[in-house]
Write a protein that binds this DNA or RNA. Structure first.
Lengths: 200, 200
DNA sequence: GAATCCATGTAATTGGTTACATGATTCA
DNA sequence: TGAATCATGTAACCAATTACATGGATTC
């Protein structure tokens, strides 16, 4: 398994004036440990879906801007890969950004947009929509419960140490787990109201 | 206050093959009652921020596609406005879409991306970030509690009737209120962990 | 006199998705 | 034989934000 360094970027290069949301997420992933584009996509997927067609160009921009560097890694039995690491510049850009005021959060959820107009539909149809929603979140809960249990079992010290990256990961998966549980509770509440009116 | 109908769209027109997320939200708003672009933006703002620069062109597309129609309304003492209404085509497009499988929800939240890499920061700095987050959600909770109380007081029957649009609105604001409360709880949990390690 | 509300848009840019393209290895 | 995993990208398009542009009426 041979490695070779790739050509350094032009020192006169101009990076983007402000890094995108995705760039900050990628830097956060790479700060934990160097990874390939493919591995970054997988890691991101657990907390925000990102497509390869967006990640690879973003990595190229980050490298052009001097925020990350890469080495080509020859592999036998599978395709070669390019492994990226955060530079001092990249680390500084990330930690500086963390000090700034975050923009208010946004969500997009087609299901909720549908519910917004669901009063035009038969309650039984709406009930069926909620059944699917429920199944979706119950599946996610199972998955996240496993993640939480594994983290607690394998890294009891790290998940309790605010200076370790597993602490950050741990509190974030805890949050998502609790939100998914709340989604399930809310589904049940609305479904009860729907059922009440159907028989009444 | 005079009104006049605007020219009908070309019957040979071709609308977009699939309506956007925003289009469905706009149709949902207009199905409750006809509104101007300006009023649509205000209504949407309570559950998803939309800019005029996106709403006005989208309204034009919807009209071109025959999903909405508009009338110019002359006003005295303030600028004239164009009031949009949903057509039968628009209503059918919306209710058809509601029956379809919604895409999985996505969120973007800079604060959480920051927390993902917050293990590189002093716990006291992270604590300060959570303080601001807390204040942000506590303010939202106050606002949504008022909305819920007003809905229950003014429309006790409507919010309980799954075939009335206020039912949809009511259950959606309830959900948001509960999520904001959960965010506050989560902030407190993480802050407790941070404080524990700071004195320890 | 300044700020805010009402009211409607265009232009440029960034962010993100969909579709396309390639190709080896492993497992059922 | 076909599906899944590993691995990296390009081109075209759609979604969304930022900045710009205008202008009267009301409120502080």
């Amino acid at each position: 398994m041979a490695t070779k360094k790739r050509q350094a970027a032009d020192p006169d290069r101009e990076g983007p004036r402000r890094l995108s949301n995705l760039s900050h997420q990628i830097l956060g992933v790479l700060l934990r440990e160097p990874r390939s584009g493919y591995d970054i996509v997988k890691e991101l997927h657990s907390f925000r879906p990102a497509k390869t067609s967006q990640v690879y160009p973003t990595l190229a921009e980050l490298e052009e801007g001097g925020f990350v560097t890469s080495v080509d890694v020859d592999q036998k039995g599978r395709p070669n890969k390019r492994v990226y690491s955060v530079t001092d510049t990249g680390r500084a850009a990330l930690t500086d950004w963390i000090g700034s005021e975050p923009e208010p959060p946004t969500q997009r959820d087609d299901f909720l947009t549908m519910i917004y107009s669901s009063w035009t539909k038969e309650p039984s149809v709406v009930l069926a929509m909620f059944e699917r929603r429920l199944a979706y979140f119950e599946e996610l809960i199972r998955s996240f419960e496993n993640t939480v249990a594994a983290l607690r079992a394998n890294f009891p010290k790290e998940v309790d140490d605010p200076l370790h990256w597993r602490f950050s990961r741990y509190v974030l998966v805890l949050r998502r787990l609790e939100i998914y549980r709340l989604e399930v509770t809310w589904c049940h509440q609305v479904m009860d109201k729907l059922r009440e009116k159907m028989k009444g």
